[in-house]
Nucleic acid binder design. Structure first.
Lengths: 155, 155
DNA sequence: TTAATTAAAATTGCATACAATTTAATTGTA
DNA sequence: TACAATTAAATTGTATGCAATTTTAATTAA
């Protein structure tokens, strides 16, 4: 690849990631709207369905989001009635997020979403399942790198 | 993969794309700041360095962005002095974007960015170059799918 | 034990993204 | 030729994202 090629849009991995991420998120919209969720609140719920009672900090570490994004998002989820926000009794700095009954019940309705979404992506013969698994694994390797480099930033 | 697994965050390809895209864009920031560019204005410049004189619509098709995002972005690039915006003489609906001399000169300074960025991602032994090429190819397949599905949306 | 430091959320300000609507220009058609 | 339909930008409104700062609580060190 010569000098000039490096600036070509087609060679930018980040641009491809950016486009694919945005386009898939657009496809989530009609599936999430009936549940009163946006994509960001959806991944927050996914995380909480796996483990709730976590602090904003812990949730942010999992979702790669900071309090500037999470605070208003979680306030809305509380208003919608899916979660409650309570200060930790032992350390008042921590705000802990708990699923409400309504929030727990939502999981059942959410279960059909991944399948519906995959339908709109997989169909056709562009990508087979093994290629998607390989994709996910490569991305997870990258994510682990970001986690590691964030730690070293603090040093 | 059983029912419950589908909602696990680790199995969401979109979440992995979303995180990787955001984290890489963060790494661009310090490299782009000296050039007075944000990530979005950077990809707009990348596209214009390949081909300028295009309409907002054409640029939007290339970047997967709409006029709601591009109009304010391009106005800023015009103020910075990298581009000029001129209505097409033959069809006044079209706004054509041209690089200024300053905008063309910027390309030289931008040439070191892809290399610097890759350094901050590749280093270590998590991802080798062939894996990144495979990643890019898979993402390009997905992008072509999005293009195709957008066309069919209009039908 | 108090002052300095650290830590977690919240806040502020700026830059996207995009759906939906509006405005202006062009095209197709009766 | 009028006029409806279409098209391209721009505008409006909502929801992020994140850097930087502020606020409050807890911890550490003098």
């Amino acid at each position: 690849m010569n000098e000039n090629e490096y600036l070509k849009l087609d060679n930018q991995i980040c641009f491809a990631l950016y486009v694919c991420s945005k386009e898939i998120i657009k496809k989530y919209r009609p599936l999430l709207e009936p549940l009163n969720l946006t994509y960001t609140s959806y991944i927050a719920m996914l995380s909480l369905w796996e483990k709730d009672g976590v602090t904003v900090k812990e949730l942010g570490d999992t979702l790669f989001l900071d309090s500037g994004t999470l605070t208003p998002l979680l306030k809305k989820l509380e208003i919608t009635g899916y979660i409650s926000r309570k200060r930790d009794t032992h350390d008042e700095r921590n705000l802990r997020i708990y699923l409400t009954e309504k929030g727990k019940e939502l999981k059942v309705r959410a279960e059909e979403i991944p399948g519906n979404l995959l339908c709109s992506i997989y169909t056709g013969n562009y990508c087979d399942s093994s290629e998607m698994i390989k994709l996910r694994d490569t991305l997870h390797k990258l994510m682990r790198k970001f986690l590691a480099s964030e730690k070293s930033d603090k040093t």
